[in-house]
Write a protein that binds this DNA or RNA. Structure first.
Lengths: 154, 154
DNA sequence: TGTTGTTAGTTACAAAACCAACTAATACGC
DNA sequence: GCGTATTAGTTGGTTTTGTAACTAACAACA
């Protein structure tokens, strides 16, 4: 229980979370960077399109809680790499519909598999009994509602 | 248990950790930014000096796992703000000894208190029973040894 | 000693993130 | 319909970060 005078940085929740986040992200980040020249936001956008199917930039922005300028640039980069295709919506011409190309889908499958593997490596470090509790705690802290009212998968 | 085809981003550990880290950092970050014009690295350096007393940039870099260039810039910024003072070591003239000024100490006390408060706010969200387990899990994942072999406090 | 290697810390340049202002299209109220 | 507000998405300029090369001081060992 952190106390003003005595508490250690190592007990401070934001610090622990940031360190843990960095630790778990590092190797995976290197993978998609080296392999596909992707940035973190690009991977997240790719993941959303791979997982949920066709979406607009706005929907991804809301779902992933990433600012629209970052989405915009990530989409441009992914298009440049031929992972993503887009087309302006016929009905509402402000909107652009985004989806993965074949190449993008292949990258998505590869990266998902990789992600699942890294996930297991890190989860293996925490005691079996604590695993579900850990995810639950993190969801509560991050204020993420359990996957329900989200864009329909596929 | 994330599976290649079906797992949701919301189950993926790095994602959860990053979201949780962002959530817990945001308000506190705003506080030290608005109040003292500090960046995250500056707060961490300030914290180390406040908590452990006089240190060198290298020691902070090792302890906080922050690259030396970031430390260098943070120290320069903190010195500019009159929070930190430095003096070249008499014996080993490569080294600079760093310590907090009175103003720096006051900021440290304020920010520590604030940090402890934010910590409690977020910890309150997780069930009493899970709290110690959560910190333990995070330390394991971040590969942080429990505070033992560190620079002597004070 | 003096040559080579290592360590502490800074600087410079490129990559990325942040924020604010912008365009183009739609919705809303009358 | 017409003026105003709102929404989707992009662009530009400034901060921050990341990376590599640099300086200065010490260490090690022939």
């Amino acid at each position: 229980m952190p106390d003003t005078e005595t508490f250690d940085l190592q007990d401070f929740l934001p610090y622990l979370l940031n360190e843990a986040a960095d630790a778990t992200s590092l190797e995976f980040q290197r993978y998609y960077k080296d392999r596909y020249g992707m940035l973190r936001t690009e991977w997240r956008v790719l993941f959303h399109l791979g997982h949920y199917g066709m979406m607009t930039a706005k929907q991804i922005s809301d779902s992933a809680r990433i600012h629209k300028t970052k989405i915009s640039r990530a989409v441009a980069a992914l298009e440049e790499k031929r992972f993503v295709q887009r087309e302006r919506d016929e009905v509402d011409r402000r909107i652009e519909n985004l989806w993965l190309s074949k190449t993008g889908q292949a990258a998505f499958r590869d990266l998902s598999a990789q992600a699942a593997q890294y996930d297991q490596i890190f989860m293996a470090k925490v005691p079996e009994a604590d695993r579900e509790a850990l995810r639950r705690c993190l969801r509560v802290i991050a204020d993420i509602q359990t996957p329900v009212s989200r864009p329909t998968p596929r």
